[in-house]
């Protein structure tokens, strides 16, 4: 009868067997030639696997990675400089507008009414536009548009979620 299982033999090879099981295994092996052969076979496979070969990357592998990293760092720096420049220009423009308005208000206080009139004029234009396009932005249209966007979002999120779940499940099997 073959009552020595491979699991125990593998545990024995890995030194992962408790003392009781070890004692039992040794006892069984004394009387089982087939068991000893199987153990020997596994031991040989274990020894062969220790000699598993190492593949080598191409000679300039390290240099290629370092140059890619360097390039990425440079691009990042450029991006940073670009964002800072745009932001600076924006701030400068804002400061110029504020400065001009302040100068305008301080130098000619009587013109405040004119300024208010101008602001009111632009607000009226905006109001007229919104009135003209009230058909487009009617509550009904807005609710239809909102429903469509919500539905699309819901489908996209659900698809993404199920896809991720599927991939994770597969990968963890």
């Amino acid at each position: 009868m073959n009552d020595i299982d491979d699991e125990k033999l593998n545990q024995f090879i890995d030194g992962d067997i408790n003392s009781n099981d070890l004692k039992n295994l040794k006892e069984k092996l004394k009387y089982s030639e087939a068991g000893r052969k199987r153990l020997s076979g596994l031991q040989n496979i274990h020894n062969e696997l220790k000699k598993i070969s190492i593949f080598e990357t191409s000679i300039n592998f390290t240099e290629v990675i370092l140059s890619r990293i360097e390039q990425k760092v440079k691009t990042k720096k450029k991006d940073k400089i670009f964002i800072i420049s745009i932001f600076s220009i924006f701030i400068l423009l804002c400061l110029m507008i504020v400065g001009y308005l302040s100068y305008y208000i301080i130098s000619e206080p009587s013109n405040t009414a004119v300024l208010t009139q101008k602001v009111n004029y632009y607000i009226n234009i905006l109001l007229k536009f919104s009135e003209n396009s009230k058909d487009l932005f009617s509550p009904k249209n807005i609710s239809i548009f909102g429903s469509m966007v919500s539905f699309c979002l819901f489908v996209a999120i659900y698809t993404l979620y199920t896809e991720q779940k599927f991939v994770r499940k597969r990968l963890r099997q």
């Binding site: 190492i54 593949f55 080598e56 592998f61 390290t62 990675i65 370092l66 990293i69």
Partner: peptide, 14 residues
Amino acid sequence: YALLINKYKNKAFS
């Protein structure tokens, strides 16, 4: 970083 690359590249490549 080259030190880390050289240390791990061949085994990870294998």
